[in-house]
Structures are given as structure tokens and as C-alpha cells.
Amino acid sequence: MNVLVVNSSGRTDQSVSRKLVAELVAELVAQHPGLRIAYRDVAAGIPCVDDVMISGLYIPQEQRTAEQRQALRLSDQLVGEVQAADILVIGAPIYNFGIPAALKAWFDQIVRAGLTFAFLENGYTGLLHGKKVYLVVTSGAVEIGSSLDHATPYLRLLLGFIGLTDVEIISAAQLSLFGELPIGAAEDVIRHIHALA
């Protein structure tokens, strides 16, 4: 089975979300040593959608110019990583009540008509199914599920839009208020993860 690990924290050594993501991956590997792990650090840089990319999105691949194909190359690669994954582990610290800009840029690259969702006569349907998603969400002051949390509902919406509905949230929230306690609670959840058959 394949696991795709997506980190989005702008911090490295001091990142709680990265620490918890690493612990979750270690737990999954301990339970299932044959897992293949792929990593994508979106904080290292994901380009924003631009005119050239948009102009190539809605025309057949064979009609795209060389410039359009180049503009979509990373997007195609990112979509391929998600399609190949059986499990996604996404680290998402809450910045200013929402998700990091780098994570939004990643979603903008992978939400693709014909690849991860399809238009229907009266709406749309997600094309990615049968995958488990773990969202590792951290915050300094925002309570997960409160009216100030615009991150987790948005992430569930985006994931559901592309067909990923088996989503489990592991949170360490309000770290500036409660210190290490939320981290310990999240680590306890991770120790009791039994996600795979």
C-alpha cells in the first residue's frame, strides 16, 4: 500500500504538525512494515495557478501548447501522487483561522476536472475513492470545530469534492493556551490508530 505524506507547515524543527505527522507515519509503518511512503513538502514551494495553466486545463491534452504542457507538468505529477496513494496524511497547521497558503496552492493544483472530479449534468462527482485521509491539524489558539476554525471544514469540503470522504482528524489545538497537553492527547490518538485491514 502507498502512503502520501503532505506537510505544509512553514516551520521545520519547531513544527508540531510535522512532529505529529512523523509519529503517525511511524505508527502506520510499525503496524504495516510493507507500506511505501512518498513525501511532498508543499511549504518548500508550490506555484500558484496562472493564465497559462488555466488556458490548458479545459482543452484536450493533445491540443495543448508546449508552454501549457510545461505549466501543467507539476500539477500532473501532484495528481499522480494522490491517485497512487491508498492513504493520505496531511499536516495542516491553522494560520489566521485557515490553512497555509502553500496547502491551498497544492489543492489548486490537484483539484482537476477529468482527473480528480468530473462535471455531471446536474453537478459534479469526485473521482478519487477508497482512500483513507488523516488530517493532522494544529493551532495556537483556535479551537477545532469552533466558529473560528475555517480550516477543517474547508479541508473536508475540498477532500469530499474530489471523492475523499473517509477523513479522520487528529488535532493538537490551542497550543498557546494549553502547552503540551494537546500534543499528548494527539499522540495518544496516534498510538491507538488501526486504520488498515
Rank of each mutant, 00 (worst) to 15 (best):
M1Q: 15
M1I: 03
N2C: 10
N2T: 12
V5Q: 02
V5P: 01
N7G: 13
N7R: 15
S9T: 14
S9E: 07
V16W: 02
V16C: 06
R18I: 00
K19D: 03
L20A: 01
E23V: 03
L24R: 03
L24F: 03
A26Q: 14
A26T: 13
A26R: 15
V29M: 06
A30W: 13
Q31R: 05
G34D: 14
R36H: 07
V42G: 05
A43W: 02
G45M: 05
G45I: 01
D51N: 04
S55L: 09
S55M: 08
L57N: 05
I59M: 06
I59H: 11
E62G: 14
E62C: 14
T65I: 11
A66M: 15
A66G: 06
A66K: 14
Q68T: 05
Q68V: 04
L72S: 05
R73V: 08
D76K: 08
D76I: 03
Q77L: 07
V79C: 11
E81Q: 15
E81W: 00
V82S: 01
A84P: 07
A85H: 04
D86P: 11
I87T: 04
V89P: 03
A92L: 14
A92E: 12
I94V: 13
N96W: 02
F97V: 09
G98Y: 15
P100S: 12
P100M: 12
A101P: 10
K104N: 11
K104Y: 06
A105I: 00
F107K: 00
F107D: 01
V111C: 14
L115A: 07
T116H: 04
F117D: 03
F119S: 13
F119N: 11
F119Y: 15
F119D: 10
F119P: 06
L120G: 01
N122R: 10
N122S: 10
N122M: 04
Y124N: 07
G126K: 00
L127S: 02
H129M: 06
H129A: 08
K131C: 06
K132W: 07
K132S: 14
K132V: 09
V136P: 10
V136G: 00
V137L: 05
S139M: 10
S139K: 08
G140L: 11
A141L: 15
V142K: 14
V142H: 07
V142I: 15
E143I: 10
G145Y: 11
G145C: 15
S147Y: 06
S147P: 02
S147I: 05
L148T: 03
H150F: 12
A151T: 12
T152H: 08
P153H: 09
P153I: 04
Y154S: 04
I162P: 02
G163A: 00
L164K: 00
L164Q: 00
T165G: 15
D166C: 06
V167W: 13
I169P: 07
I170V: 12
I170L: 13
S171Q: 09
L175S: 09
S176N: 15
S176Y: 12
L181E: 14
L181T: 15
A185E: 12
A185I: 08
E187W: 09
V189P: 03
R191I: 06
R191S: 11
R191C: 08
H192I: 03
H192Y: 05
I193P: 07
H194I: 07
A197S: 12
